[in-house]
């Protein structure tokens, strides 16, 4: 099951899982449970790489080594929690936004789409894990590592969201345009690209002709207002993700403080990042 889920994630990364013919049914095909397990595993891999920072730091004698191991464990639990909780919180709003702009995507298809986007996000994140682990081991500065991790989460998040927007675009287009194409084989301007795709598909095509997972397919362009609505949602997702990260902190663990699972309610993510940047530059 796990192997199949990894293959499914790989197909999604390569763009085969979200190619026009693969999403004819209106949703992305992958085993949901196995995909969750793969997602958790990838997030845990990144959590471990992140946790290396606490393992390799000199801590004051009052803190002790047990806290360092606990911090690694905490990071391995919290990274998956961060992603799944953010997903849980933002799904209803995306569903509503999507309905507002008139897409006929069903709740199940929406859930699968979000899972796939999270899979892409986690795959990029985990693949950056070795670099993060290396910097975690060799960098004593807590501030530097904090910002480094924020940057890595930012990069992978952006790629994940780019995939989400493009796939949403494809799924919406498939739903909207399939019916008219069937009704009128000649097709109007909008259905022509769809038609040309299906003729391409009957010919033996190479892998390279599959559009990339984050490509815009010609002729499938979202309207201006739809674009605006989704951009707003992406912003919301980013904000919720960042604040969720803040609620679940500490991930890295300040070497000067004893281990805690959570910290008190104070400040916010953006203020903290700015403060950290100021401290790092001001040295």
């Amino acid at each position: 099951m796990i192997g199949k889920s990894f293959q499914a994630l790989d197909r999604i990364l390569r763009g085969e899982g979200t190619s026009p013919e693969a999403i004819q049914s209106g949703e992305i095909q992958f085993p949901l449970a196995g995909f969750c397990v793969v997602g958790i595993a990838l997030a845990m891999v990144y959590g471990f790489c992140m946790g290396m920072f606490s393992l390799f730091r000199d801590v004051s004698p009052s803190i002790g080594h047990r806290d360092q191991y606990l911090q690694v464990l905490a990071a391995m639990v919290k990274v998956p929690a961060l992603f799944f909780l953010t997903l849980l919180i933002t799904t209803p709003s995306l569903y509503v936004f999507n309905a507002l702009v008139g897409s006929r995507l069903r709740a199940r298809a929406m859930m699968r789409l979000l899972m796939a986007a999270m899979g892409v996000n986690l795959a990029v994140l985990a693949s950056l894990g070795p670099i993060v682990a290396f910097f975690s081991v060799s960098t004593p500065s807590y501030d530097f590592m904090l910002l480094f991790n924020v940057a890595v989460f930012g990069i992978s998040g952006m790629l994940g969201l780019l995939f989400l927007i493009q796939t949403l675009n494809r799924l919406s287009s498939t739903n909207t345009f399939t019916a008219p194409t069937e009704l009128s084989p000649v097709g109007d301007d909008e259905s022509t690209p769809q038609g040309s795709h299906s003729t391409e598909l009957t010919e033996p095509t190479e892998h390279s002709t599959t559009p990339a997972a984050i490509d815009t397919i010609p002729g499938q362009v979202m309207g201006q207002h739809v674009k605006l609505v989704f951009r707003c949602w992406v912003l919301l997702y980013g904000l919720v993700g960042a604040q969720m990260g803040w609620v679940l902190r500490p991930f890295l663990g300040n070497p000067e403080l004893p281990f805690t699972w959570f910290r008190g309610r104070q400040s916010n993510f953006f203020e903290a990042v700015l403060h950290t940047l100021g401290r790092l530059i001001g040295h």
Binding site: L13, A123, P130, L159, H207, A213
Partner: peptide, 13 residues
């Protein structure tokens, strides 16, 4: 690893 994953994502697998 990250280079290969981003290559795949850009459709260069």
């Amino acid at each position: 690893p990250s280079f290969l994953v981003v290559n795949s994502l850009l459709g260069l697998r």
